[in-house]
Structures are given as C-alpha cells and as structure tokens.
Design a protein around this nucleic acid. Sequence first.
DNA 1: GCATTTACCGCAACTCGATTGCAAAGATTA
DNA 2: TAATCTTTGCAATCGAGTTGCGGTAAATGC
Lengths: 136, 136
Amino acid sequence: MQTEEEILKIKKVKNTAVRTVVLRHLLSLEKAQSLKDIENALPYTDRSSIFRTLKTFEENKVIHSIEDGSGMTKYAVCAEGCNCDPKDLHYHFYCTNCDKTFCLFDVPIPNIQLPKNFKLQQANMVVKGLCDNCNR
Amino acid sequence: MQTEEEILKIKKVKNTAVRTVVLRHLLSLEKAQSLKDIENALPYTDRSSIFRTLKTFEENKVIHSIEDGSGMTKYAVCAEGCNCDPKDLHYHFYCTNCDKTFCLFDVPIPNIQLPKNFKLQQANMVVKGLCDNCNR
DNA sequence: GCATTTACCGCAACTCGATTGCAAAGATTA
DNA sequence: TAATCTTTGCAATCGAGTTGCGGTAAATGC
C-alpha cells in the first residue's frame, strides 16, 4: 500500500495540506465517496477546496470518478499502476439500499464490439442492486 | 413500428396531448434525449409537464433513463417487448464530442459474476468515446 | 345530463450538487 | 527580498431536477 506522499509524488501532484488529508481519507475507505461525503468527514476543510482537489486528482489520475446514478459523482483512488485507460476499466456496484458504491476490481470487463467506426475512450459501468450487507 | 397510441395503450398509460407529443418526439429520434433537449424541441410545452410525463413513462416502462455522465439524465423509448429487467439491459454509447447518446441494442451484455451475496437489480452501462460521425 | 371526483397541465418557486470569482495566504522563483 | 504563481476559504452563482398550487379537462357516479 502506497502512502499519500508516494502517490502524489508518482503522479506529479504537489503535496499540500488539503490534498494530503483528502487523499488519506479516500485511501482509508474501501468505498467511493461523494464530495458531500468527504466534506462531512473533513469539517474543517472548505468544500470548494475539496472540489478543486478532486478535480486536480482526477486530471492527474490519482482518482477516478464514477457516475453511479445516485445524483452525486463519487470518487475512488485509482489502483496502483492504473492509467485510467479503457484497459483499466472495472465495474462499479451501487447498492440501492444503503447508497454505497463499490469498485469491483475482480470482475473482468469483456471486450465490447462497438459499431463500425466508433472509438472507445472510456466507460462507466454501474451495476445496481443490493450489497451483501443489505441483501438479507 | 408501433404508433404512440399503440404504445400507450399497451403500457396502460392514458393518452393526453403532452404525452402524445413527447412520445412522438422520442420515437422520431434514434438518440436518447435529455429533458432540456425535449424542452427545446417542444417550445410550447411546459418543462414540468414534460418532466412529469417522462416520470410517468418511466414508471410504466414506456421509456428508460440513462445516466451517461453528461450531467443530464437522458431518455429513450424502450424496445418492443422490453420490461426493463436486467435481461433487457443494453450498453449505451456516449459521444464525448457531440454529446449524443446511442442505445447499443446489438451489443450483448455478458453475465456479470457479482461478489457473494450481491444481488443484481439494474445496471447502467455507458461506453464513452467518439461516434462514427465524430471519429474522422 | 349534471354534479362530483380525479387526473393533468402550466406557472413560478425552490432544492441541491456543482462550479466560479475574488481576495488573502502560502509557496516558488528570480 | 521582491515578484510571481499556486492554493485556499468564502460567498455567490449556475443549472438540472423537483414540487406546490390553482386552473382546466377528463372520468365517474347519480
């Protein structure tokens, strides 16, 4: 497991107080977080600072964003070695009961045969249902 | 191809002026439309009426909604016989250049082996890239 | 056919997540 | 140190989505 400092260094993002605390928070959780989640967890850090930090992280591929259909964009730390290429794609699972979003790194994404002349750049694959905790 | 009246009858949705015009508009286009798209195309129809119409259509499985990551929910008419079950899933393609969203009915969705005790209800699979028109 | 109930429509207002302008504080460079 | 660039915090704004409400139209009961 890499530390915040190592990740920021590798991704060439300057280390600041807000960036460290946001990244540490994301690393400490296994689930994707919304801006509001992070804001609530870090009450002394300003929302717009967190917002801009997330944008910076995304541009530099420290994190990736997920549209899970909950109405809020969520963010999760990229896996080590991830370049956010199509090959780094993975499914996300959104629990419709507890509103949590999981990265399904272990579920392979098949090759998608697009129509002629369409070019794949990215994908956002969200599977919805009940997570193990809510499926009882 | 079914007419608006036939579809509404089959899906047990009462036919009204707004519903007819909205459904006709969606049927006339091969691409998924946002509320704003529809609003712009139907300048004499009120936004909230269109909004409620879309909600009604969605509840009654006349249309399905797509979160393509553009920030706006888009809507497309369900294929004939669609029940919006997981088996009726299909990929959507979002063109990052022209902002259009296509239903890829012909691309099969593989079985997704979820982690133990997770239950699939729905999915939102959006592939992003360039459409044939923009990929030149 | 007429009264009553229910559903639909249009307008305006509001909610809330996302985003931006700006000035102060901090870091970097010359 | 001075000049420059970046980051931060606050407040304001934007825009998609949603709702309350009164009026109108359609369906139902008598």
